[in-house]
């Protein structure tokens, strides 16, 4: 299921809706699995009254993790060699996210990819890159 270099063209894209109407419970689930219990992600009272945000918001790493699923489904199991992102905007409960990757270069058995995740308003929430081994 890995990608074949001969089938890839610069500019090829792969795009997946990685979450629809993000639930607070999924954010709680991520807090539990990752061990990041920052109340900003799960404790509405603290986040509104003490930290000054309109509501709890997702861990950046949850968005990176969900975007990673789009990548590994595309490049194949165990093929990723690099994956890095900037968190460009916060992700809120109720958000619907679309993750897209674009082929930038294919050389020496490695595909270089651009990675972008946007919310339902078309606003970027994550921007980055990945590299993977291809056949």
């Amino acid at each position: 299921m890995a990608l074949k270099a001969s089938n890839l063209r610069v500019g090829d894209t792969h795009s997946v809706c990685i979450v629809e109407d993000l639930k607070r419970t999924q954010i709680v689930q991520y807090a539990g699995s990752s061990g990041d219990y920052n109340p900003l992600h799960t404790d509405e009272i603290f986040t509104v009254k003490v930290a000054g945000y309109p509501s709890v918001f997702a861990h950046g790493m949850l968005t990176m993790g969900m975007t990673g699923r789009m990548l590994t489904d595309y490049v194949g199991d165990g093929r990723l060699t690099k994956y890095g992102v900037r968190f460009t905007n916060q992700v809120w409960p109720g958000d619907t996210l679309q993750a897209t990757t674009t082929v930038e270069e294919v050389a020496d058995g490695i595909v270089k990819l651009k990675v972008e995740t946007t919310n339902q308003n078309g606003v970027s929430v994550l921007s980055g890159y990945a590299e993977a081994r291809v056949d």
């Binding site: 920052n38 109340p39 930290a51 945000y53 950046g60 790493m61 165990g78 890095g84 900037r86 968190f87």
Partner: peptide, 20 residues
């Protein structure tokens, strides 16, 4: 540290996999 609510926010994360 206003807005961070303890520890600030995560701005970037990068991984290099030597193996999985």
């Amino acid at each position: 540290g206003g807005g961070g609510g303890g520890g600030g926010l995560h701005a970037e994360q990068h991984f290099e996999y030597h193996r999985h």
